[in-house]
Design a binder for these strands. Structure first.
Lengths: 355, 355
DNA sequence: GTGAAAGCGCTAACAG
DNA sequence: CTGTTAGCGCTTTCAC
């Protein structure tokens, strides 16, 4: 009868200790702890007290072994916990944590060998599901369709188009930018963005284009300046754009970094932001956007929402309600001083849904 | 395709299935799979073949239950997977992963309630150890000294000074910056940094100060311009500094963001970098440091090493060789174009730099 | 109402 | 060499 000190320091108390302490059987203790079966209130309380006294925390592993479910999921990122996958993971962890699910984070460094290795590890740890995330939205080889557990892709998608994927609305983001410029009364617009081989760049450009054209503005896909995702290209692209279209009065940039570069060149050329030229960035990467002078209006992809949504789809799938195909999460326009809206702020922050 | 054995579809194969398939007992299968005991080679091979055929992966939970070790650790960050904790976690994950240890990542959002909740969860999942990380190096309340598992602090430390903590060498980083300036032949130096209440800011400043003074330069702790960790403060601080010391020829900044702001003001005032004024940042935050024109020389805290080291200390502690107190990981100087070790101030004229 | 017993998947003694 | 047995900590019938 070890009514003495709990587990004598080294061992963590088990349900057996609690049962002994409460003077009941293991089975009864289990029921009391989980509110199962029919027990006298006094018994329940006695067990609860013993558990509290011993600092008992049930061994989740043992539970999992029995339940055939671990209440864990794996999050695999190819992005080295980078700027894009982080918010996604945060959102996912948030949504999962609320459901008492813990997350194994795995960073493959974009190495297929490491990916396989992590996958094996996650499977042998019997995770209930998998979220695969990355830095680019381009379809990637499926991580496996016969894994026996549900998989959701976030901020990336599988070549197998049936697998569920959650993506930001790059097209809609482009539309948002265009709409905001038009609201500001700027119709002579330009667009400087990243490499054309990036699907995200093309989508943003076409959303921007079509929204401008749809509103009666003049802008053609050929006017888009594709380059790279860097400040340096922003500086260079701005020179090119201003030479080609000196009367431009608004520039939409494919990233906040590009926008920073553009701002530099504009300052150099004596063009004021936003009075002469309005500027919109993309990513709403706050250190960049806020550090700029003036702070940048930007499109926020709401990556936390992407992650959260991915988690919700995964939870649904784990509960036998799988989803299929691509799901789009809307972007958000964040207005700052690099654009000068002429209408009440309430109308600025809106969401445009893409088809 | 695995052949259809008992429970082929839904269930994952267990060692029992493998044993049956190989026509041996469970115990034998276990030994064969783990290379234990003495078995006939043929038997081993038969079991291995069966396992392969069935796609068997051992249930790590069951193993853990038996071993009393889970080969998992928890990483708790207060930093929302932010800029500082990410590399730390990467390094930790790296070192841990090599030892087949998986990582539960938990983000407390700096909320003590969430921290407690995560801690409970990690304990009930029986993690073998804990790494606590944050965004600031200031001592924080211990997460618990009587947890029964080892804890290592990384990029933060416990108020209980006996607990092991791995910290970047902010003091040494300041020294590095000073040394580099002196190497470049610049002795009239300035220092613009973050808020004085940040221990990191004070350490960097004193390292810088003492190294400058030690080399016969003149710089006093009173000359340090404390402000905030922002580009805006960099812009403002540069104005202040140049007004107070118009002949300054080198500025050490407490962060790359501050350095960006300083660079902006220098450009505005017509001072060339690095010809007229050399610039060193801190953090080596590549998007910031590389995006700057010219790219910034910066001090890298090697946070991945901090994380890796923390993991090593944790592994040691798990293997009953705990360590105690603070351990310092050295910084690294990354030279880029904002300083020019070859050419002393004023000698470099009209160098062309591609945009 | 409560206890005893079976077993989740696996490993580690022991027998044979 | 291989099979049997006894658990790891927990939940869950099923008797009493």
């Amino acid at each position: 009868m070890p009514s003495a000190e709990p587990g004598s320091e080294g061992r963590r108390p088990t349900i057996r200790d609690v049962a002994a302490q409460a003077g009941v059987s293991i089975g009864t203790a289990s029921k009391a702890l989980n509110g199962q079966g029919k027990l006298r209130v006094a018994t329940r309380e006695r067990v609860a007290a013993a558990a509290r006294e011993l600092g008992f925390a049930p061994n989740v592993l043992a539970k999992a072994l029995l339940a055939g479910r671990t209440y864990t999921v794996g999050v695999i990122t190819t992005d080295s916990f980078g700027r894009f996958s982080i918010p996604v993971m945060l959102g996912a962890e948030d949504a999962l944590g609320a459901g008492q699910i813990s997350v194994f984070m795995c960073d493959t460094r974009d190495d297929p060998a490491r990916e396989r290795q992590y996958l094996d590890m996650l499977l042998s740890r019997r995770v209930d599901g998998l979220i695969v995330t990355g830095r680019r939205i381009e379809p990637r080889p499926s991580i496996g369709v016969t894994l026996g557990i549900p998989v959701v892709y976030a901020m990336t998608q599988s070549l197998d188009t049936d697998e569920p994927a959650i993506l930001p609305d790059d097209y809609g983001g482009g539309q948002l930018a265009a709409g905001h410029f038009l609201q500001c009364g700027r119709t002579r617009v330009g667009h400087i963005t990243g490499p054309e081989r990036f699907l995200a760049a093309r989508k943003r450009a076409s959303g921007f284009c079509e929204a401008v054209i749809g509103a009666g503005g003049t802008f053609s896909p050929n006017d888009v300046l594709y380059g790279e995702w860097s400040e340096r290209w922003g500086r260079e692209g701005a020179h090119i754009l201003l030479r080609a279209a000196p009367d431009v009065e608004a520039i939409f940039c494919g990233s906040d970094q590009i926008a920073r570069g553009v701002a530099d060149t504009l300052r150099l050329l004596g063009r004021r932001v936003p009075q002469d030229i309005a500027l919109i960035g993309f990513d709403n990467w706050t250190p960049m956007a806020l550090g700029s002078d003036p702070p940048l209006t930007s499109i926020d992809m709401c990556l936390e929402d992407v992650g959260r949504t991915a988690a919700e789809h995964l939870l649904a799938a784990i509960n036998d309600s799988p989803t299929h195909g691509v799901h789009i999460v809307p972007c958000r326009l964040v207005v700052r001083d690099s654009t000068d809206p002429q209408v009440p702020a309430g109308d600025q922050v809106g969401q445009v849904r893409s088809a």
